[in-house]
Write a protein that binds this DNA or RNA. Sequence first.
DNA 1: AAAGATTGATCAGTCAATCTTG
DNA 2: CAAGATTGACTGATCAATCTTT
Lengths: 147, 147
Amino acid sequence: MTEPSDDATTAWARLLKAERLLLSAVERELKAAGLPPLGWYDALLELGRAPEGLRPYALEAELLLEQHNVSRLIDRMEKAGLVERRPCVEDGRGYRVALTAAGAETRARMWPVYRAAIARLVAAPLEPGEAASLARLLGRLIEAARG
Amino acid sequence: MTEPSDDATTAWARLLKAERLLLSAVERELKAAGLPPLGWYDALLELGRAPEGLRPYALEAELLLEQHNVSRLIDRMEKAGLVERRPCVEDGRGYRVALTAAGAETRARMWPVYRAAIARLVAAPLEPGEAASLARLLGRLIEAARG
DNA sequence: AAAGATTGATCAGTCAATCTTG
DNA sequence: CAAGATTGACTGATCAATCTTT
């Protein structure tokens, strides 16, 4: 079948629209609170799980970013003092990126704002169980796009 | 309630991830076919519904773009010969944007590529009826974000 | 003053080329 | 040569200021 159903086309259009609307609302709230953009949160979160630091290529896979974008994201976050580059003994080509204390602190300040936005924009509009349904359906799309 | 459920948080994370993955796949395919980015398609589609042209502020609302971004999008599309700016008798501050023949033709060439991508990325991974469920749930988020 | 639209400056993302080490 | 990472040049998005007309 090469013809998508109307339902599939509507779902696709709404996926784009919902993402834009919700993401822009979240970014607006973070900015209003004097906090960094959401992309930084994701990076800080991943790095927080690896006290010894992560290789850029590992961040690349987690964040769905390209190599040069990771490189520049790390540049900006390092400049802001939130992460640091540490030499890597096992592979001289690369290094490890690790959270600084300021990075951990910034992530901690971002979460309440982020959490409140998710509660209002995602949890509140849905009936109990619908969030799980939505997560399941989106999970199917993600799996299929990867395979 | 200010604490989102885990389901809501998962749904949010997957909304971001699914949108990124699917959109980047679609953009890749359009580019591989020598076609313009998806944002142009949306604009061409809206303009195709209004033979007499649309005011930029109307496009702004439809496409969820900001005024200055619409202004520059029109610049690029006009430069590519796909739309034209027409004087507007009823309001001297603005103008109307209208499709050219080349714009209509480009939109027609984009649709088969776009349609095939939606079929593969959205329709194929879901069971019958699931696309409708997904569309409904996303619609709820969109409504709530607007209200 | 408010609405419609544009512009210059700056910041982030992308492309292609490059550099270093495995 | 392949993998990890960076850089310069360009394109696109954003911020703040501006201009014109209502």
